[in-house]
């Protein structure tokens, strides 16, 4: 896999939302700072690779997923898909071939399914919308296949049901079946298991891992749970306040983290069998700042237990610290 070509490439990608100041700011005409939800992300996903994006909430993970699936437009940088620049592509018909190849799975499957539609219609919707099938037999065939691939067996039993008649795990499988129906090359999964029970979580992770095996489909898996990322991903990118602060193989990030933020994430993760080998770094203090007020210098420095003078002044560059292992921290210089 390391030599497979990139399917997705983000170069200095930015998404800034216009700031929404308070009422007073509005009246006084004070400009409010832009919300820099994604603020210069470089990342590549290879064909058939699973990359996990890890970070606490508010670090811009969902925004990144939404810009890749073209639900919002980037405000800067470049977005390359399979070598083509798709940064400014928009409009329903221009996006049709892209939608055919990039799909999405959502955090809350209940919210992502229209309560008035049957499971059949939900899974068939992408095939109908993108006009990928010509007749009803073919449609039923494809829908049945997608059901089976997502572990909804026997498929016919689910066709006529409505979302509220399914369990949480089944609902997420329906969303997955819908995404699979068009046989995409890349699926963006935004915290697909964080709303599910632990036992169901493992089922869904298993489905996704099996799919990658069978279909050589790339997956960008967003989560705040490091062990889940380790389990499913080939590589992990750790995100903090709109930037990627560390990338590396799943094992490197989990067992040999270099950035203090990654270390803090790991320390905060509860472990089933105690926490024998964890370094005793003081726990992270405080909360992630708002994306409208990003600190100067290294954006992590106000919470970093190891910060020194330089961190307050300059933003650290991304440094290679090993094969496929990069981090943005002055300590590595």
């Amino acid at each position: 896999m390391p030599d497979a070509p990139d399917i997705l490439r983000l170069e200095n990608l930015q998404v800034h939302f216009p700031g929404r100041g308070g009422v007073l700011d509005h009246i006084l005409g004070r400009p409010s700072a832009a919300v820099r939800a994604v603020d210069g992300v470089d990342l590549a996903v290879r064909r058939g690779e699973i990359v996990a994006i890890v970070g606490e909430s508010g670090s811009g993970k969902s925004t990144l997923g939404r810009v890749i699936t073209k639900l919002i437009q980037p405000t800067g940088g470049r977005l390359l898909f399979d070598g083509d620049d798709v940064t400014s592509m928009k409009g329903f018909s221009a996006l049709r071939p892209y939608r055919h190849r990039v799909q999405m799975i959502f955090q809350d499957a209940y919210q992502a399914l229209n309560p008035r539609h049957t499971v059949f219609d939900i899974v068939a919707e992408p095939l109908r919308s993108l006009r990928l099938v010509t007749d009803h037999t073919q449609l039923t065939q494809r829908v049945r296949q997608s059901h089976a691939a997502a572990g909804l067996n026997p498929p016919e039993e689910f066709f006529a049901r409505f979302p509220h008649e399914l369990s949480g795990g089944q609902r997420q499988r329906v969303v997955i079946a819908g995404a699979l129906a068009v046989a995409p090359d890349l699926i963006v999964a935004d915290e697909p298991v964080s709303m599910l029970d632990v036992s169901i979580r493992a089922q869904i992770l298993q489905v996704l891992m099996d799919l990658r095996q069978q279909r050589n489909m790339a997956l960008l898996f967003i989560t705040h749970d490091l062990p889940v990322a380790w389990l499913i991903a080939d590589r992990i990118a750790v995100m903090y306040l709109g930037r990627v602060v560390e990338t590396g193989t799943a094992d490197d990030i989990t067992f040999r983290p270099r950035h203090p933020y990654t270390v803090a994430l790991r320390n905060a993760t509860p472990h089933v069998r105690g926490h024998s080998d964890r370094e005793k770094l003081p726990a992270l203090k405080g909360e992630i700042p708002s994306a409208a007020r990003i600190p100067n210098g290294c954006r992590f420095h106000p919470r970093c237990p190891l910060a020194f003078a330089r961190c307050r002044e300059d933003a650290p560059p991304t440094i290679e610290v090993g094969p496929e292992h990069t981090t943005a921290c002055w300590l590595m210089k």
Binding site: S199, A202, L205, Q206, L226, V228, V272, R273, S276
Partner: peptide
Amino acid sequence: IPNPEHGKRMVRP
């Protein structure tokens, strides 16, 4: 529960 300290990268749903 995925457990990195376990070493093996698998879960049993």
